[in-house]
Design a protein around this nucleic acid. Sequence first.
DNA 1: TAAGATGCTTGATATATGTCAAAATATACA
DNA 2: TGTATATTTTGACATATATCAAGCATCTTA
Lengths: 242, 242
Amino acid sequence: MHKPAPNNSLKTACSTCNLRELCLPVNLSNIEITRLDDLITRKGVYRHGSILYRSGDKFQALYAIRTGFFKTQILNEDGREQVTGFQMAGEIIGMDGINSDTHTCDAVALEDSEVCEIPFGRLEDLSRELPPLQRHLHRILSREIVRDQNIMLLLGSMRAEERLAAFLLNLSQRFAVRGYSPTSFQLRMTRQEIGSYLGLKLETVSRALSHLQESKLINVRNRSLEILSLSGLQTSMGKRAR
Amino acid sequence: MHKPAPNNSLKTACSTCNLRELCLPVNLSNIEITRLDDLITRKGVYRHGSILYRSGDKFQALYAIRTGFFKTQILNEDGREQVTGFQMAGEIIGMDGINSDTHTCDAVALEDSEVCEIPFGRLEDLSRELPPLQRHLHRILSREIVRDQNIMLLLGSMRAEERLAAFLLNLSQRFAVRGYSPTSFQLRMTRQEIGSYLGLKLETVSRALSHLQESKLINVRNRSLEILSLSGLQTSMGKRAR
DNA sequence: TAAGATGCTTGATATATGTCAAAATATACA
DNA sequence: TGTATATTTTGACATATATCAAGCATCTTA
């Protein structure tokens, strides 16, 4: 665990990447994408448990996840920890660092993962030249704001089982967009990480999963999860206000 | 309540605005600021209770608060509501709308307020010409992300009284930056709005305030709040994990 | 200025989730 | 491959916060 991050890096081509419809190059022409290629480098594999960046690190780049799975978390002074997100291929992380030129959370690989490094200064330069890139960068930043506010809604107003249902539906939908099964997937994180993300204790997560299973909405065995009724989960999410 | 928004608008000058060190023009030269002046219009007064924008509205502009106080809130399908923030002079709202060209929350004036409208397309154009403006826009977006993640920490890991303490300290600090007393101010929102923001019921907010008062950390009477010990509040915020 | 509506506080009680503990299972590593 | 470690489940019990209710204070507006 926590092996040092690899140093070797190689040129990447957004132009040939199968995530380009999902990732940074959205809405760019082929010529524009080759401009992006110039500034992005692929970093070697981050092994399970290794740290992409840490709170306090100087901010220099955004990272596009090429393969794998990450979590981001903040720790406050007294050691309290909060998982702020789980990120998968095609998603972009590191935006917390732009404000103060310093990262404010840790990003940890939850499985062996590859990322593309996007030096932020150069991205800003290029996005002044390419309006569609500028526009998309703004959308990505705004999307993160909207995402966070929906988690606030979840944390502030839903009960345990609803939070779990919302979490599973969110994962499902993101897997679907990537061409994976929306109803059958592996959880990449522990119950305690899910709990931290959802503002619950791990025992509560475990019980809520068991209960959803009793209700025939899911099958769960360790990290393998099968959704038996997407619509059932949906309704279990919105049943009553707290 | 909910008076229609005023239609009259007039030219504004960031150059002569006393909030320019706090607001959008940060780090711009005088010449650059006059470029900003060109695209910003001041909208008339939004009366207490009136709505600046609503979830579902087409996104066209960001708004800088010139005077007054707003709340933003999201409502999910089943009518559950979550206050996602309270905004004061010099702060910028509307960034939720960039992602999908549609606002995803409501912004409501909590007292009579004035805002400056910043058409977003023109802001993007100008920020391609002025790197310091581009940079600052990115910082503002990132700051919002960091802010939201800190609220996630609060909602996910603090108990009622700690949340209240964190909330009051945050207000205090923002008043201080604006030259107001950090220890004596008016709450602009109801207990129920505070509760929604903090993921608590209004009765719990009321009890927690009473208890902080018993502990001699604050004096509160209706909406007037006096902080008796900033450091005491600070420690009451970080006592134990949940 | 009066009257209704809204907001706030406090008490009694209910309940969802946390805490502690133990056993079962899975995973990592020597 | 076997052993130690980490993760997960489940039960019993504790507790923080929600819920319900009543009375009072404050604001709004006629």
